[in-house]
Amino acid sequence: MKQFWKSMLKSPSGVIGLVILLLAISVAVFGPMLFPNSPWRMVQRPFLPPFTLSTVPLGTDALGRDVFAGMIFGARVSLLVGLVSTLVALIVGVPIGAMAGYFGGKVDDALMRFTEFFQTIPSFALAIVLVAILQPSIYSIVASIAIVSWPPVARLVRGEVLSLRTREYVQAAVVTGQSNSWIILREILPNALSPVIVLASLMVATAILLESSLSFLGLGDPNLISWGYMVGAGRTVIRQAWWITVFPGVAILISVLGLNLIGEGLNDALNPRLSREGR
């Protein structure tokens, strides 16, 4: 573990990514405490440019709502959707991939055809359809993002398990009569985890983008403010008021970039083939 942090902190991209993520998480967690006012509240005259009033540093939107408050509350929704939907996708994808890889044969065939069924549909189109059918709400958005993002997890885990399955220590476990679930959970998965962690960090970024895209199209939860919603609501007035779209857009950009950097850092840190010592 200590080794891991050491190499993680050695990679500059990992450090930058971690800083950005920590910043975003602390904004999401503590920001609303500092700004108890609802981001929907109309506080000033509409279309107030940024940096004119200290009470609304980033200006106001078409209804006179504080863009800064919107960004802070939006961080909460965007990050929450990103993390929860990734978690759900992992909960679905990891067992399917592990079973397919471990048992092989017909189980593998059945599970992989099932996975391919989802992979053949363009994920964003499927997400739109699902949200539209289920009615836009935070639950339907998380569910649909999870549904479109678990197949790559399943395939990755399957590949890892397939190769680990033939290792000697796994065969030894089989010979000593350990149960299948024990072998999968205790022997194989811990060793298959590192690429999954890297993938998960990138999935969070993708999920944030997906949520933003859905909100941008007006398929966000109408009761929650998110960055994508702000961009979507502001884009019609972009010629009069650039700041309504630009600030939340930058927030999306930075947090997605941060997560990607973390993914890269993790990859470096967890990859056994990259030498860690003596460089």
């Binding site: 929907w40 509240r41 209804l63 009615q135 007006g218 939860d221």
Partner: peptide
């Protein structure tokens, strides 16, 4: 369209300000 969406948000906020619990239904 946008005008009506914004109006819905403004009315929701007005009603919440006087203590009503409002849930917007997207449709």
């Amino acid at each position: 369209g946008e005008t009506w969406q914004r109006w819905g948000e403004a009315v929701k906020q007005n009603l919440q300000d006087v203590g009503m619990t409002i849930e917007t239904i997207a449709t």
